[in-house]
């Protein structure tokens, strides 16, 4: 099994569109790639009993999360014929409409990138110890739970 170096996943605050654009541009030199796929998680303004979510504050058990991200990456490289893979997740406050998760996979051919992206997102949601405090417009809060 190939092993890859653990990579930095956590980003302070929202993931900007410039950051995402730069990540795409950096792959122009990797000419064995024929297909990219991207998943972007965006903070939704949920309406809960008449109160609107205005932001999510993310925290994590970072040491364990970094371990889990590494395991998830290795499992995806093992399962799918990928050229490269990038995962970024926000910590701290991310406002509604902003991006909190950016998953980016690249491969020589298209079919695997669709499967790989779904695998990665589902694994991240199920296994990464990340916690989200949904902050309402009136500054009260509740804790988000992945469904």
């Amino acid at each position: 099994m190939k092993t890859h170096k653990p990579k930095k996943v956590f980003i302070d605050g929202a993931i900007s569109s410039e950051f995402i654009a730069n990540a795409i541009a950096k792959h122009q030199s990797k000419t064995s790639i024929g297909a990219h796929n991207i998943f972007l998680g965006q903070v939704r303004a949920d309406n809960i009993d008449g109160k609107i979510v205005s932001a999510i504050e993310y925290t994590a058990y970072e040491e364990m999360a970094n371990d889990k991200f590494h395991e998830i990456r290795e499992a995806a490289f093992e399962k799918f014929d990928l050229t490269c893979m990038h995962i970024y997740h926000s910590l701290g406050i991310v406002k509604t409409g902003e991006i909190c998760l950016f998953v980016f996979v690249s491969a020589p051919r298209r079919k695997v990138v669709f499967k790989a992206i779904e695998f990665l997102v589902e694994e991240i949601k199920a296994k990464a110890p990340i916690f989200g405090k949904e902050i309402f417009e009136d500054e009260t809060h509740q804790w988000k739970v992945n469904s």
């Binding site: 364990m64 916690f131 989200g132 992945n146």
Partner: peptide
């Protein structure tokens, strides 16, 4: 790693984790 109730405590650090909310 997540452990179940019957696991032996063999580390000097244990973490209690509420439901995950990543992504």
């Amino acid at each position: 790693d997540i452990v179940d109730l019957t696991a032996k405590v063999n580390a000097d650090l244990i973490a209690l984790l509420p439901p995950f909310a990543g992504g």
